[in-house]
Simulated assay, not measured.
Amino acid sequence: MAVTASMVKELRELTGAGMMDCKKALSETDGDMDAAIEYLRKNGEAKAVKKAGRIAAEGLVMAEVKDDKTAAIVEVNSETDFVAKNADFQAFVKAVTEQAMATEAKDMDAFMEEAWIEDSSKTVHEALTEKIAVIGEKLSIRRFEKIVSDGCVVAYIHGGGRIGVLVEAETDVVNDEIRKCLKNVAMQVAAMSPKYVSRDEVSQEFMDHEKEILLAQAKTENPDKPDNIIEKMIIGRLNKELKEICLLDQVYVQDSDLTVSKYVAKVAKENGANMTVKKFFRFETGEGIEKKVDDFAAEVAAQAGM
C-alpha cells in the first residue's frame, strides 16, 4: 500500500514520533495505522500515543445534577468558537442537557428520535435541524451519558465548557464535605484524564498487550541485560503506567502526599461515611475530531520527498 503524506501526518500527530520514523513504520506495516503505532512503540520511537486525533472541533460540554442522584452530561459541537459563545447555541445545549436528564435512550440513535423536550411535536433530530438553519453552521449532538445513583453524583465543568466531568460514588453519607470531596475528584479527572477508576477495571488483555510493548521497548533499550532484570523493569514500568491511567492510583493533585484513593478514604473517615468512587465520565470538546485538513500534508510531502 502506498504511504501518503496525510497518513504520515496522522501517525505523527497520534504518536509524537519523527516524520521519517512514521514513514518507515507505515512502510513496514503496509499502511496499517494501528500496526504502525505498535511498530513505533516497540522500537521506542513513540514516546506516547497522544490522542486519537487532533482536537479541532468547537462547541460545548454541559452537565446537570438533580438531588445528588441523577446527572447527565452532553457534548454539542459547532464549527466555530464564535457560535459556541452564542447565547442561542448555549440555550440549545442546555435544552439538550435537560433532554439527557429525562431520556430513557441507551444510544444516540434512540436519543435523536425521542420527542424534543421543548416541543413534543418534533424529534431531537428535527430540533437540531431547525437550529442549524437558524444559526447557519453545522451543529452536532455528539454524545451523552446519564447516571442514576443510590449514592452521590457531582459534576464539574472546566474552561467554560471545554471539559466536563461526572463522578459517581457509593456513599451512605451525603453532605457538603462529601460533595466537595467528589468535586475535587472530578477536577482531578478533568486535569489528569485517567482511563479507569481502579486497577480492577483493567482487563487482562490490556495488561498482556502492554507487557508485550514494554518487553520490546526494554529489550531494545537494554540488549545486554538478562531476562530476570528485564522482567523486573517491565513490572516497574507497568506499575508506573497504571498509576497514571487509574484514577484512584494517581497522585492527588491538591496534595502530593496522597493518592486519590487515600484522599477519598480520609474524607470518608472524617465524615463517618462508607464511600467508594464508582464511575466517572470525562468529555472534552472536540476530542478526537479533526475539524479541517490544512496544508501540513503538503509540507510533510515536501520534506519526506514524496
Rank of each mutant, 00 (worst) to 15 (best):
A2I: 13
E10K: 04
R12E: 04
E13C: 12
E13A: 14
A17C: 11
M19D: 07
M19R: 07
A36T: 04
A36P: 01
R41W: 04
G53Y: 06
I55T: 15
L60K: 13
D67F: 14
I73Y: 03
S78T: 08
S78A: 11
E79C: 01
N86P: 00
K94V: 03
T97Y: 02
T103Q: 02
T103N: 09
A105K: 14
D107Y: 08
M108P: 10
D109C: 08
E126F: 07
L128W: 03
E130D: 12
K131L: 04
L139T: 07
L139D: 07
R143N: 10
F144H: 12
C152K: 05
V153K: 05
V153P: 05
V154S: 05
I157T: 14
G159L: 13
G161M: 07
A169W: 05
V174G: 09
E177D: 13
I178A: 04
K180Q: 14
V185E: 00
M192P: 02
M192R: 13
P194W: 01
P194M: 03
Y196G: 00
F206M: 02
E212W: 05
L214P: 11
A218T: 10
K219W: 02
N228L: 04
G236I: 06
I245L: 05
D249E: 10
V251E: 09
V251L: 13
L258K: 13
V260G: 00
A265F: 05
K266E: 11
V277K: 08
K278F: 02
K279E: 12
F280G: 03
E290Y: 08
F296L: 14
A301G: 09
